[in-house]
Design a protein around this nucleic acid. Structure first.
Lengths: 234, 234, 234, 234
DNA sequence: CATGAATGAGGTTTCATTCAT
DNA sequence: TATGAATGAAACCTCATTCAT
């Protein structure tokens, strides 16, 4: 009850995420969030400037975590941790950090040495996995854009990071003769869109695996180089 | 739908659509809508039950219009009129109703006699065209789901109509040996997602044509039957 | 319940004046004002922008009324009415508008043709009379300055009007050889100060007449020309 | 008055005085005072019971200091120390403590042996001097009365001390045939009022000397005994 | 049908005060 | 004694909704 407790902040964001995911922004009362977080109403203002700030922080941090993790996994294959960047991870292979970076499971190496389509597969897997791990967040992101009030710039930058990451991967594949895509920047936009649709509008019966496989299939075949059978050759 | 003054109703929905698209639901005041529509605040309640009703009607009518039109064009060339009650359309072929269905132009027949990939192309074209015609609405639909308060059933039904329409098209193609897709219901979900992403997050430079072409390419190649149809060969 | 009722506005200001006079600004709740005025809380915001606006309007209008009345009586001797400037008054003599301009009593003519000390007497009478009629307001003005938030300029201008009015009167007396005052602008500041002190800090036993007489005496003797016995001679 | 750390207390009162003088009570936050004083918010409660207590102490101590000093100088040349506990003053004559009583300069004896008008002059000088030395306080006292919450009695007593001091002086002059004033208790009220007005509402150009002289002139001539003392003759 | 003044429940936010450290 | 995170009552204000005109 003395230092600005990081754990208490977590309680708040966690509680808030659930409430914002469950009903629209204007129907979420700070009273409820405070109650759910087990803190007093005033305490919210110790950690956040306003309702909007709380909401923004919530969504942005979630999204940033996703993007940063993807970046980390594809760029350096170093650690699979999110935005808060804690201790580096031993395994240098590709990592599905499904469990919030606790108990990181090693995956078949994929990051740098892999074929482009394998990398795309990684991206899709990761996006879908994140979506299944954070259904609240995805429900949250549904309304983002209308409310990314404060530093719109931060959101835009993160979005660009994500699309550029994908775009770069595709371009590499194209350069390697492995893929064919005259407009990779458009494909980069399509991928998160597909994930989102499957998450939000799919009937509950869709498994993570199926969703991922479907997107991967559409992509790998849709982007396959015109003369196939030459996987990832130099 | 038979209200005192249909024109006044139009003013209201038009003004409301702009406001709701521009800022989030809870930041739109009925005062503003009334002012923008040139009516008194009380008048809003002559045409709508509540703020939520207004919002719901707005989004649902827009979406229903899109789905109905698609249905009409693919199913039997019936009419393309949406919820807002447009006149029945003459042409019974496939119609790109790009110009708000005023001056309905007949298009190359496509609906029933076409190949499945041609039909998919139609669907995508139509979705994209609608998105470009109604940017407000697409921005609006971004937040739908969180607020589809009242007759959630109506929305769900329309959504299902859309996905089933697409799904049916794909299944037909599969049955004809033209396409290959073990999970058409998933693909059906992906398509609107791609449209949405391109619309909302693409830099403004993306033309309607490019967006449409990109999705079509991903689809037609991604779903192409395994062996035949060497279409895409150079 | 349709036109922005002027009478309702009066109810509000009247109720508010009592509350603000009774306790300090921060202890006055809008709830109480609304209740005392017999209106809903929201109605306050139909007539005023904020609590501060209400308070400011209150004090300023009261003070302005005082100054305007004084001005009217001395300048033209026309009507004794306040700032709202209603129908001109028949009697062109000096008028102590003690009863808020209802039932205006004619007083010995004084305005233009009088000696300067008689005019000063009028000013003091009027100030004191106003103070006794509006004890609430005087209690209110006690805190003004700290809170004249909005258009500080308006207050300053009115203050200047008052002091200049007095100053002008004194200067006229000096020019006529009737009074002696090398710094009339300082005397002009002293007069309201004396009124205020007597009002706020005097024991309740001080009659209006006594207060007025005391100030007049201090002034007329204090400012008497060095060689007396030549009353108002040219 | 015997608090843990007298210096810290000083920091607090000093900071608080500035803040309360600069804006109205309800706009001063304890956070700000604490920050300005360089202490933690909780520390304020070591030295004061509440915000009101702090404010009250502040204003009362300032006013009491003024009154006590006046008393000391006129009554018996005791000491001029106020509530804030300054060292006893050496000089037993009348002292213009213009420089915050540091380096107390002896002044021409005035207290007991002087003429009444000379004593009045002393009082006015002292009041004006104090006002010029403590502009913050005068700004503060402007709102006093509305907030003299706690021991209203203490304030009233001090006020009475001041007026009675003045009143006694005048009565002595009247008894000596030097002055003429049928209602000295009213004059006693007027004097601080004039000081206040000149301080608060005068344009900044008014020198301490001019303000003092003006009041003295009004008083000495206004109260001069009817016939004798041709002092003011040219 | 149309109006817009009035309503008042309930929202977000503030801030004096407490208390574990 | 000093701290400042936590508290929560209560303030100001909003705005969807009503209804007399």
């Amino acid at each position: 009850m003395q230092v600005p407790n990081e754990q208490k902040r977590r309680h708040i964001t966690s509680a808030a995420a659930k409430m914002f995911a469950a009903r629209p922004y204007h129907k979420v009362r700070l009273d409820d969030i405070a109650a759910a977080a087990g803190v007093a109403k005033g305490t919210l203002y110790v950690y956040f400037d306003s309702k909007e700030d709380l909401y923004f922080t919530l969504t942005f941090e979630g999204f940033a975590q996703l993007v940063d993790r993807l970046n980390a996994q594809l760029e350096g294959g170093a650690n699979g941790e999110g935005v808060t960047g804690r201790r580096p991870q031993a395994g240098n292979g590709f990592v599905h950090s499904r469990r919030l970076a606790s108990a990181p499971r090693v995956r078949p190496a994929c990051a740098l040495g892999c074929s482009s389509s394998a990398q795309l597969e990684c991206i899709v897997h990761e996006l879908v996995a994140y979506a299944y791990q954070h259904p609240h967040l995805y429900e949250l992101l549904r309304t983002v854009g209308a409310a990314k009030v404060r530093s719109k710039g931060a959101w835009d930058a993160k979005c660009r990071q994500l699309t550029e990451l994908i775009e770069r991967t595709i371009r590499a594949g194209v350069a390697a003769g492995e893929l064919s895509d005259p407009r990779p920047e458009l494909t980069a936009l399509c991928i998160p869109g597909m994930v989102r649709s499957l998450m939000l509008f799919g009937t509950k019966g869709i498994t993570e695996k199926a969703a991922s496989a479907q997107i991967v299939k559409l992509l790998t075949r849709g982007l396959a180089a015109d003369r196939p059978a030459r996987k990832a050759a130099s």
